[in-house]
Measured scan of single mutants.
Amino acid sequence: AVSDRLIGRKGVVMEAISPQNSALVKVDGETWRATSGTVLDVGEEVSVKAIEGVKLVVEKLE
């Protein structure tokens, strides 16, 4: 799938994300809905860990 190429890519949080709420991230110039197990604020850099349906699963870039 096209989205599989995004695993391992870096992105930027466009809307705050919490474990209860998905929000938008920008990866390679494209906007995607994403979820995370932690709270992520706007502007934080993230890494794509997986794809669940049409959502990216991201975590904060260390």
Score class of each variant (00 low, 15 high):
residue 6 L to A: 01
residue 32 W to M: 03
residue 26 K to Q: 10
residue 1 A to G: 11
residue 26 K to N: 09
residue 9 R to S: 06
residue 9 R to T: 05
residue 33 R to C: 15
residue 13 V to M: 09
residue 49 K to Q: 07
residue 32 W to H: 06
residue 19 P to N: 11
residue 7 I to F: 05
residue 6 L to S: 00
residue 14 M to H: 04
residue 21 N to L: 09
residue 10 K to D: 04
residue 17 I to W: 15
residue 54 V to W: 14
residue 45 E to L: 14
residue 12 V to D: 02
residue 39 V to I: 11
residue 11 G to H: 01
residue 44 E to T: 12
residue 48 V to K: 00
residue 17 I to Y: 13
residue 46 V to Q: 02
residue 2 V to Q: 09
residue 37 G to A: 14
residue 23 A to F: 15
residue 60 K to M: 04
residue 43 G to D: 04
residue 10 K to N: 07
residue 31 T to M: 14
residue 42 V to R: 06
residue 11 G to K: 00
residue 32 W to A: 00
residue 38 T to W: 09
residue 2 V to W: 12
residue 54 V to M: 14
residue 3 S to G: 10
residue 55 K to E: 12
residue 20 Q to D: 13
residue 39 V to W: 15
residue 37 G to R: 11
residue 38 T to Y: 10
residue 47 S to P: 01
residue 40 L to Y: 04
residue 61 L to V: 11
residue 31 T to K: 06
residue 4 D to W: 08
residue 26 K to C: 15
residue 38 T to I: 08
residue 36 S to D: 05
residue 47 S to Y: 15
residue 3 S to N: 10
residue 56 L to I: 08
residue 4 D to V: 12
residue 1 A to E: 10
residue 53 G to L: 03
residue 3 S to K: 09
residue 50 A to G: 11
residue 54 V to E: 15
residue 46 V to K: 02
residue 21 N to C: 13
residue 22 S to C: 15
residue 28 D to M: 07
residue 28 D to R: 03
residue 1 A to T: 11
residue 1 A to K: 11
residue 59 E to K: 06
residue 51 I to D: 02
residue 54 V to A: 13
residue 6 L to F: 06
residue 14 M to E: 05
residue 22 S to E: 14
residue 45 E to D: 06
residue 62 E to C: 13
residue 37 G to Y: 14
residue 51 I to Q: 04
residue 18 S to E: 07
residue 55 K to V: 15
residue 17 I to C: 15
residue 61 L to N: 06
residue 61 L to Y: 10
residue 44 E to V: 09
residue 58 V to N: 00
residue 2 V to A: 11
residue 61 L to F: 09
residue 60 K to R: 12
residue 24 L to Y: 10
residue 43 G to P: 01
residue 24 L to F: 09
residue 14 M to T: 08
residue 5 R to C: 11
residue 30 E to R: 08
residue 38 T to R: 07
residue 40 L to F: 05
